[in-house]
C-alpha cells in the first residue's frame, strides 16, 4: 500500500494541472493549419504552379493571415499578465521554444503579407491603391516569387514544428516529452491544411490534387501516431501511464473515435475512393480531417496536462 496526501491545493495546479484551457489547443491548431497552408502555398509558388492552383497560391495566404491572427488572439487571451506581453519582444531566449515561437510568429506576418501582395484581393486593391504598385514590382521579378515560396515553406515548417516542440520541451509532462510530437503536429497541420484547400478550392484539379496530398499526409500522420504511442509504451512506467491516458484512460473515447476514426481513417478511406474516382469528392471527408486535427490538439494538451511523473502509481 502506498498512501500519499498532499496539502497543496493551488488553483490550476491541483488536483491535476489545468492551466491551459481552450485557448492553447485552438492556438496550436490554428498555428498548425497555417503552417500547413504556408508549406502548401509556398511549395506551389516555389514550383511556379500558380496557374494550376490559384486557391492555394493566392487565397490561402490571405486566409492564413486571418487564421493566424485568431490564433495569436487565442494565445494572447491565455496570458495571465496581458499588459506585459511586450516583454516577449525585449529579449530572445535561445532555450525557450516560446521565445522562438514568438519571434517566428513576428516574422511570419511579413512573409504572409508578401505572399498576399503577389496577387492582392480585389477589395483591398480598390481601397489601398499603392499596394498595386508593390504587387507589380514583385511580379516583375519571377525569382522573387520563387523566393517568397521558399521562405514561406521554411517558416511554415518552422511554425508547424514549433507547435509540437512547445509541448515536447516540457519534460515534466511525460505525454508531451516525446521526440515524435513535432512531426505529428507538422503532419496534422499539413493534413488539415490540405483538407481545407481540398474543401474550398474552386478548381476540380486543385481540389483533387490536394485530396491526394491529404491522403499522403493522413497516412503518414497515422504512422507517426502509432510510433508516438509505441515510443511511450516502450519507455518508463511514467510514459506508459501517460500513453494509457489515450489508449484506455479518460481520453480514449475522444482519441479513438474522433482523432483516429473520424479524423484519419474514415476520411482517408473516403478520399482514397474519391481520388480513385470510385466516388465523388465529399466535403464531409475534409471537414472530418479538420475537426480531427482540432480534437487532436485538445486531447494532447489536456491529457498531457493530466499526465505526470507522479501518476505512475509510484507517488501520487
Amino acid at each position: 500500500m502506498n498512501e500519499i496526501t498532499n496539502t497543496r491545493m493551488n488553483p490550476g495546479i491541483d488536483p491535476s494541472l489545468s492551466i491551459w484551457n481552450w485557448e492553447i489547443p485552438i492556438y496550436l491548431f490554428l498555428g498548425g493549419i497555417v503552417a500547413g497552408m504556408m508549406i502548401i502555398s509556398g511549395y506551389f509558388l516555389f514550383k511556379g504552379r500558380t496557374k494550376d492552383v490559384e486557391c492555394s497560391c493566392f487565397l490561402v495566404p490571405f486566409i492564413s493571415f486571418i487564421l493566424l491572427s485568431f490564433g495569436m488572439l487565442a494565445l494572447f487571451l491565455d496570458l495571465e499578465h496581458k499588459a506585459y506581453v511586450w516583454r516577449v519582444y525585449t529579449t530572445f531566449k535561445i532555450k525557450s521554444p516560446m521565445s522562438w515561437g514568438s519571434w517566428i510568429l513576428i516574422l511570419i506576418y511579413p512573409i504572409l503579407i508578401l505572399n498576399i501582395l503577389i496577387r492582392i484581393p480585389d477589395f483591398l486593391s480598390k481601397k489601398l491603391k499603392f499596394l498595386k504598385s508593390i504587387s507589380l514590382k514583385i511580379n516583375s521579378h519571377p525569382t522573387a516569387i520563387k523566393n517568397i515560396g521558399l521562405v514561406s515553406m521554411i517558416f511554415g515548417a518552422l511554425l508547424g514544428i514549433y507547435t509540437g516542440v512547445l509541448l515536447s520541451s516540457l519534460g515534466a509532462r511525460p505525454l508531451w516529452n516525446n521526440s515524435t510530437l513535432w512531426i505529428l503536429f507538422l503532419l496534422s497541420g499539413l493534413s488539415s491544411a490540405a483538407a481545407f484547400v481540398h474543401l474550398i478550392a474552386k478548381s476540380k484539379y486543385e481540389s483533387h490534387l490536394l485530396a491526394k496530398a491529404d491522403n499522403v499526409f493522413l497516412s503518414l500522420e497515422l504512422i507517426v501516431l502509432v510510433l508516438f504511442l509505441i515510443g511511450l509504451l516502450t519507455s518508463t512506467q511514467v510514459h506508459i501511464s501517460a500513453a494509457e491516458f489515450l489508449i484506455s484512460g479518460n481520453y480514449a473515447p475522444l482519441f479513438w473515435v474522433f482523432v483516429i476514426g473520424l479524423g484519419i481513417i474514415i476520411p482517408l478511406i473516403i478520399q482514397l475512393y474519391a481520388v480513385n474516382n470510385k466516388i465523388k469528392h465529399q466535403p464531409v471527408a475534409p471537414i472530418m480531417v479538420i475537426i480531427g486535427g482540432l480534437i487532436l490538439r485538445f486531447v494532447i494538451v489536456n491529457a498531457g496536462q493530466a499526465s505526470h511523473w507522479f501518476n505512475a502509481g509510484m507517488l501520487k
Binding site: 497543496r8 495546479i13 491541483d14 496570458l79 495571465e80 516583454r87 521554444p97 520541451s169 516540457l170 515534466a172
Partner: peptide, 15 residues
C-alpha cells in the same frame, strides 16, 4: 517581466 504564459508551470515536475 512575466507575461503569464504558464510554460514554466507546465515545465516544473514538482508543480
Amino acid at each position: 517581466l512575466c507575461i503569464g504564459c504558464k510554460a514554466c508551470i507546465a515545465s516544473c515536475p514538482y508543480d
